[in-house]
Design a protein around this nucleic acid. Structure first.
Lengths: 343, 343
DNA sequence: CTCGTTGCTCGAACCGGTTCGACGGCTGGA
DNA sequence: TCCAGCCGTCGAACCGGTTCGAGCAACGAG
């Protein structure tokens, strides 16, 4: 059931079938109907590979996500879901590529073998080999997150600096003076992982502005690490009354650690951070947090990429999002525990 | 930089280059070295589309996941991650396809346009259009989950009946007599969603065996629904002392509902169910549950599919997994609340 | 009636690989 | 010395589409 078969049965040439189906040249009504009938009868669909070979477009976009071994977070799932959905709306398929490094094998497949028309990069670093590589090749791509010098690039990102700062201000406004910061794992921070770096930066600067006493911690992406981290925090400075976290996966453990230490949230201890709303609402008490609009970001990334593919000469565009803090139930005025602090 | 260019620079014919790279026919060492050198210099990689067109294999597998609009659960993320990883190990890419119905557009793209060599189906129903369709076409596919009549099919599944029963027995052994079942959303149950159906079945039968008094509930896939559901349970029968759930996403809400109602877990109320371990460990107290080995299942599915692709005439194979219940901290002997029940 | 348009359709070339049959040169045995 | 056989290479055909230039028929204008 290739195009030749259709042509034969419809009594026309292959090119006429092609034109009838693509509409790129006029075809008489009679002919078109005849062809359409044969196509419907046989359930014919043109081969994606052949079409891709002929016109150089695969109608597929690559979604490059973090190296294996990493634990996936809920946010990433939301990204993937929304990217796939948005891509489908533009008639693109999504090819998943687990990739880390520049010279990664799977990365080579995407680009070198021309499996995709463009790519969306997740989990950006401030200095990002992959992003640099793509830019050097002028390969159409959109980053979810922005590098240290995002000027000439296409991206959709979160203003992690501002978000972390907003968390600090929120806590400072409530009277908290000793605040901890629970970041993503040290390995990610050190490798220049954007949200970890900018979040830490925003936290530190805002805390300095408000004259807070702070400690910052790295924490593994799982509940057990979260619990351990809280233990360390309370051991290092028992007078701590609040924390800010970027670490979604550790959240459950953080709560558990606080409960074990006898700190009631939000009466004795406030928790806030940057987390997707779904997860903020899962924990009890529900987390007051800057909601990461993962679904929007995925959709926006696809829209930018499609635009870039359709109009190769458009100047770079981007979206920098700063979602507001959603007040839920995990933060409250400092006070109760100040007593035993001063004691 | 196509194969002709390489051939010209190496001073050989296109076919020789092809053979040198694929190794399908012997090539002299001199020639091979010369070709390899040119390939390395130019960073040549053969076009995936052209190769797919020529030899009829795309080296891509399709991962068909649930229709958009569904909320994704943590389990699904683990599946996706492990499938992608395992596929990469076999040199396959993974194409994501959001698909529900048989005649779905994106499903048509995968099969009709021959974008993939085989497919993995997630979120199987007992009567599954997609699975039937694939079977009818003899299209290589592996289901994650099994249909009502899985005989001739390839699949890797969980014995939900046995798992739910195991939860019941665990609770009954602890002395619980009035137990609730929190299922996935009603819409999923009614559409014949496998885990919801078989889980309910296993729960009901085991409860009857043990002479328990039970009520079963459907619950939306989010925290708020979980909370509401617990309220309904305690309203319908305040003497309920335990529940079994399949609903990962509602878990946080279930805990919250219990806390709001003043039931302490596990002292006054036991909770158990079928949940991926990552999520069971996130909540406090950690959930005693049958751990869904999502990562293993993804890997096994890929292995089966690859085997089926490599040996088209192998008789159908499958894996039925029955992970044990991991004892954590959310279940305990019935007792404390028996007092006010009998009162 | 003839010529120039206009509107459809056709054949051929091309995209970039793979694969098959054939062929030339070298070696070894008779 | 001659021929068989083997090894390595080549040219051509093919996979299934798209696209371009050309050709043919019908039609209106002069």
């Amino acid at each position: 059931m290739n195009i030749g078969e259709i042509a034969r049965r419809a009594g026309v040439s292959r090119s006429t079938v092609s034109y009838a189906l693509s509409g790129k040249r006029p075809v008489s009504d009679d002919t078109r109907r005849k062809i359409q009938q044969v196509v419907d009868e046989l359930g014919y669909r043109p081969s994606a590979s052949a079409r891709a070979l002929a016109n150089g477009r695969t109608s597929t976009i690559g979604l490059v996500f973090p190296p294996a071994g990493n634990h996936y977070t809920g946010m990433q799932l939301d990204f993937i879901g929304s990217v796939v959905e948005a891509a489908a709306a533009y008639d693109y398929d999504v090819l998943l590529s687990p990739s880390g490094m520049d010279s990664d094998r799977s990365f080579q497949r995407l680009l070198g073998e021309r499996r995709v028309d463009g790519a969306i990069l997740m989990e950006i670093r401030l200095e990002d080999d992959r992003a640099d590589h793509l830019a050097a090749l002028d390969f159409p791509s959109v980053a979810i997150g922005r590098t240290a010098r995002p000027e000439g690039a296409w991206w959709v990102g979160l203003d992690h600096t501002a978000l972390a700062a907003a968390c600090v201000h929120h806590l400072a406004d409530l009277g908290h003076r000793r605040v901890a910061f629970v970041n993503r794992p040290e390995q990610l921070l050190r490798s220049g992982y954007e949200s970890a770096q900018r979040g830490l930066d925003g936290f530190t600067k805002a805390a300095a502005e408000r004259g807070l006493t702070v400690r910052t911690y790295c924490c593994g992406d799982d509940a057990a690490s979260g619990q351990t981290c809280v233990e360390r925090i309370l051991h290092d400075d028992p007078a701590t009354t609040a924390l800010v976290t970027l670490n979604e996966a550790a959240l459950g453990g953080i709560y558990r650690g606080l409960a074990k230490a006898g700190r009631h949230v939000p009466r004795d201890f406030s928790v806030t951070g940057v987390v997707a709303s779904r997860w903020a609402e899962t924990v009890t008490p529900q987390l007051t947090a800057a909601d990461v609009p993962a679904a929007d970001m995925g959709r926006l990334a696809v829209e930018l990429l499609v635009e870039r593919l359709d109009h190769p000469d458009t100047p770079p565009r981007h979206h920098l999002l700063t979602p507001p803090i959603s007040l839920r139930a995990s933060t409250g005025p400092a006070g109760a525990t100040r007593a035993d602090t001063t004691a």
